[in-house]
Nucleic acid binder design. Structure first.
Lengths: 273, 273
DNA sequence: CGTTGTATTGAACGGCCTCAAGGTTGGTGG
DNA sequence: CCACCAACCTTGAGGCCGTTCAATACAACG
């Protein structure tokens, strides 16, 4: 019944599990932090602000594909930045079905959902091997205290996450299977371009069809069928995890895709106010 | 094609419309602000903090049922607190269908979604006559600057809104029509109890079946059918806008309703950190 | 008393699901 | 190097849940 390859705990009943993230050996890396890159997208940062953000990433740990950062109902004690690799959040229902809520890409912050809660409302797992950096709740409070700009950007990031979820809601609730898939592919295409990972008309999408199904509210069987249909019509070509969109405009039209929710029409400058 | 009784602008093309909210006569009220009540739910507030919150409500205006606070794609210039009346946010799709995203109750803050955006991503309309208070973007920044506690609570409120939307997503994506409706009724029941409006096992739910359909991703025909089914089984009785839940536990079981996402397992004290 | 928005009920259709069987791919160990 | 296995994907057949269309009833309000 459980779809994940690991010891997924249905309903989150495994209560006294501390976050696995602290049980791993710390590793050291010195690349340019991609969380700074992420924040810089909203606002020009001072040296001090960059230093504050760097503090969030003091504690990098490696995580393997499929590994859980936490399960539903675990104690919610800290947040994570995702330094490399993809992750997703999910919820299991009583009937055993799973809904995937969000896909996290490098630079994203994980766990903001539970800012006001003491227990996790959704689990999070890695899609591929990666590196995360955990920081406790009070670090965010310190950040609020020390930088108005970072406070605003943090709020902006939370707002953007909500907007992504809103669009997923609309997608799931109101579109046909082929539109759902077309729309999702375009969303990922755009997001990957924004993080600098994306190239032209092709993208690497390391998601199984089962995961896609759980994300889009479909069955994996129907995901497969829809892919073959889209492929037959020349809208999307897929080979394992490599996706090619030969005609972007055609797919945009097919999905009725409007990227305004992604382009961050961001308000000019927090700092001026 | 347009379902709303007013001049809903499909696709939000009415570009140069300033928010109607400023075109109405200001009225004066002196009741205890329900936004303070809302914030107090998360944290004990000092006099100064209450004063700051009061400033957000300097500008109360009356709005009539059905009236739009803004349309999709309008300029996003300010936020609103909802002082009385219900409101909802929505999106129209190209095929003319509408998805309702959230139901706002008195004390809620409207417009946080667009914190990082310069244009509205969703429209907002009143369900009943009410009073709103608009305040510009820089007021939130001032609040961030002046009170760490209020900053944290504002973040908590945004986080809670996201959690509500998450649950709606799961509800729409993964449950049968009868579970969707049962679940939604229980959610509203709980929320109304939290705002102090709710009594025992009955609630006033001023939502047409068409609105419910657009909220739950169903057709209004099927909402009607499902209501009659639930009623025949004695799970829910409905007379116009009055809903009675004769056996709460039975309905909870039917919906597999878990209220953890609503009870704000809130982290003890922001202030201490 | 007509009008307009809202709710009910029936009949027929269809998109997506479930079940099931087979095919493909990549990794592992003999 | 090949055999085997596990995970993943594909394809078919049949069925169900919810939709659409349409007709009727009901309520509030001028």
């Amino acid at each position: 019944m459980l779809k994940s390859g690991l010891s997924a705990v249905y309903g989150g009943l495994k209560s006294n599990v501390t976050s696995v993230v602290y049980q791993r050996k710390a590793i050291v890396e010195d690349q340019d932090s991609c969380i700074i890159h992420h924040f810089s997208h909203y606002c020009v940062l001072t040296k001090e602000e960059k230093a504050l953000l760097d503090e969030l990433e003091e504690n990098p740990t490696e995580v393997k594909a499929g590994e859980a950062l936490w399960e539903e109902n675990d104690a919610a004690e800290d947040f994570c930045t995702l330094r490399s690799g993809w992750a997703y959040s999910y919820r299991y229902l009583e009937n055993g079905s799973r809904q995937i809520l969000e896909i996290f890409l490098p630079g994203d912050i994980i766990g903001l959902r539970e800012f006001a809660f003491s227990r996790r409302l959704a689990g999070v797992r890695m899609i591929e091997d990666g590196v995360i950096c955990c920081f406790p709740h009070h670090r965010i409070m310190a950040l609020f205290r020390q930088s108005l700009t970072l406070t605003a950007v943090m709020f902006a990031i939370a707002s953007r996450q909500q907007v992504l979820m809103t669009e997923r809601l609309v997608n799931i609730a109101r579109r046909s299977a082929r539109k759902k898939m077309a729309h999702f592919l375009l969303e990922m295409h755009q997001r990957l371009r924004q993080t600098g990972t994306g190239s032209g008309c092709n993208l690497r999408l390391p998601l199984s069809q089962e995961l896609l199904a759980d994300l889009l509210g479909l069955s994996s069987v129907h995901v497969s069928r829809t892919f073959t249909t889209l492929s037959r019509e020349g809208l999307v070509h897929r080979d394992r995890y490599d996706v090619v969109i030969p005609n972007l405009e055609a797919l945009v039209g097919e999905a009725e895709f409007d990227d305004r929710y992604l382009v961050d029409n961001l308000r000019p400058l927090f700092r001026a106010e």
